[in-house]
Write a protein that binds this DNA or RNA. Structure first.
Length: 464
RNA sequence: GGCCCCUUCGUCUAGCGGUUAGGAUCCAUGGUUUUCAUCCAUGUUACAGGAGUUCAAUUCUCCUAGGGGUCACCA
């Protein structure tokens, strides 16, 4: 059975790039009806893993990712790691190193001065003398001293790293706490991982972890190292490039389905297809199709996808989403009409909310340029007589088409062009030249409110 | 700097020795629309550079350049 995992270190919030690797891992598991596990890499106890976990779960919930079984905390498994350390010590596959930090620093400085690669020199590897006083030793694992460490990466192909690039790295600190590369290998093996999908910043950790796998006799999972997401300039994604916290996308009015669709296409594709529902992703995703090269974050595409999902979302669901953005129309009697008239002109829920507010509440002021253009000539007279006409027909006005008919009758009776009334009317109702169709707006707000707004506009015009 | 990885339109990508190098986004133009948006149509734009291999290279190999990652008692 396929088993994948997401193993964040608790940094406080879920990063957009982290969400993509989580998504890839989740999809790989769901595609095979396997398991997707969550593990918190908190061997550094000073960080608050509870807070971080809450933030991650919150983001998972929002986008709809779930995980199987219990969350695994590495901080709660120290006894387990200790057993393996003792085992390796007993088997002579790891050893105590009594070098002090000062000695280590001196060694490194010397190497760097000679332009060598900083590297532990293995001086305690075969030590059997009397250990120096007053030093709490670290434990180092015996890495191979010659040959290559080779593994097949599912994304990049065969990776071959010379053994002398990997030194006898520390698996337990002088206070006894195990280190990252050691515990990751143990947990991945014990948790039954079959595929490890992670960022390619972990590529160089892999040979170290392989040393651990081999020392402990564990079976290697398949590794997939996914290239990073860069900003639009091709540099590392930072806060200056926009939102990096997944939950910020909710605040900005993005739909989770749009965000997932955007992310899944960064580094993965299925022919020419652009739109993927989560079900389609699960059906079509295969980690072997992940791209080798890094991709750039592109806001335009995200926005386009978001607009697409907004347009195609049922109004009921849309209304529910909108409440988080200050628009309560779930029980509005013209909800359908209102959303049908606006959902195609907002790329985000925030923009859509702005559009709706514009219709639902009377304009507080008129756009200067729009007013100048529309409120001139016969505008006031035309508006006034149109309002009167609306009042006459009030009993028969319910739907956009009926309002449209009145509008047509009006221009015919007055013998004026459509724009002569449409433009002033638009500015009267919305305060600007832009926006939804007049017929829809009038039908949504009703005759009384329409007349009201017209009268306000007329007195605005007449006041000069 | 050592080691490793990457390189097709501005961006996301298709391609898997022979294609008018395809799609999407963006941008531009036109159409639809009383306006804006949507929608539709059309268009501009790419194989990083150089050597090979081959009848034939975007595709295979090597080199160069550029970009990225990594070199902790962090994860």
């Amino acid at each position: 059975m396929t088993v994948t995992r997401f193993a964040p270190s608790p940094t406080g919030y879920l990063h957009i790039g982290g969400l993509r690797t989580a998504l890839f891992s989740w999809l790989a598991a769901r595609h095979q009806q396997g398991k997707f596990l969550l593990r918190i890499e908190d061997t550094d106890i000073s960080r608050n893993s509870q807070e971080a976990l809450k933030a991650i779960i919150q983001a998972f919930d929002w986008v709809g990712l779930d995980y199987d079984g219990e969350v695994v905390y590495q901080s709660k498994r120290f006894d387990l790691y200790k057993q393996y350390i003792d085992q390796l010590l007993k088997e002579g596959k790891a050893y105590k190193c009594y070098m002090s930090r000062e000695e280590l620093d001196a060694l490194r400085e010397g190497q760097m001065a000679r332009k060598e690669r900083p590297r532990y020199d293995g001086r305690y590897r075969d030590f059997d003398g009397v250990p120096p006083e007053g030093i709490n030793p670290v434990i180092r694992i015996k890495a191979p001293q010659e040959g290559d460490i080779i593994f097949e990466d599912g994304v990049k192909g065969e990776i071959c790293i010379s053994a002398n690039e990997v030194d006898d790295f520390i698996i337990a600190r002088s206070d006894g706490a195990p280190t990252y590369n050691f515990v990751v290998a143990i947990d991945d093996a014990l948790m039954g991982l079959t595929e490890v999908i992670r960022g390619d910043d972990h590529l160089y950790n892999t040979p170290k972890q392989i040393v651990v796998y081999e020392a402990l006799g564990f079976k290697l999972p398949k590794f997939y190292h996914v290239a990073m997401i860069n900003n639009e300039q091709g540099k590392k994604l930072s806060k200056r490039d926009g939102a990096t916290d997944v939950m910020e996308y909710q605040k900005l009015g993005f739909l989770p389905e749009a965000l997932l669709n955007f992310l899944v296409r960064l580094g993965w594709s299925y022919g020419d297809q652009e739109i993927f529902s989560v079900e389609e992703m699960i059906a079509l995703f295969d980690p072997k199709d992940i791209n080798k090269s890094a991709s750039s974050y592109n806001l335009d595409k995200l926005l386009w996808l978001n607009a697409h999902y907004i347009k195609n979302m049922p109004n009921e669901a849309l209304a529910a989403k909108l409440t988080a953005h200050g628009v309560w129309i779930e029980d509005h009697d013209k909800r359908e009409m209102l959303l049908d008239a606006t959902k195609e002109r907002g790329k985000t829920l925030v923009e859509l909310a702005t559009q709706i507010k514009l219709i639902v509440s009377a304009p507080e002021e008129y756009d200067v340029k729009a007013a100048k253009k529309a409120f001139k000539g016969e505008a006031a007279e035309n508006l006034r007589s149109f309002a009167n006409m609306l009042k006459e027909w009030k009993g028969e006005l319910h739907f956009p088409a009926e309002y449209h008919a009145v509008l047509e009758k009006f221009v015919e009776r007055q013998g004026i062009g459509f724009g002569k009334i449409a433009q002033p009317l638009r500015v009267s109702l919305l305060g600007s030249m832009k926006g939804s169709g007049m017929d829809e707006i009038m039908a949504i707000i009703g005759v009384d409110e329409t007349v009201d707004r017209i009268e306000k506009a007329v007195s605005f015009i007449e006041k000069g």
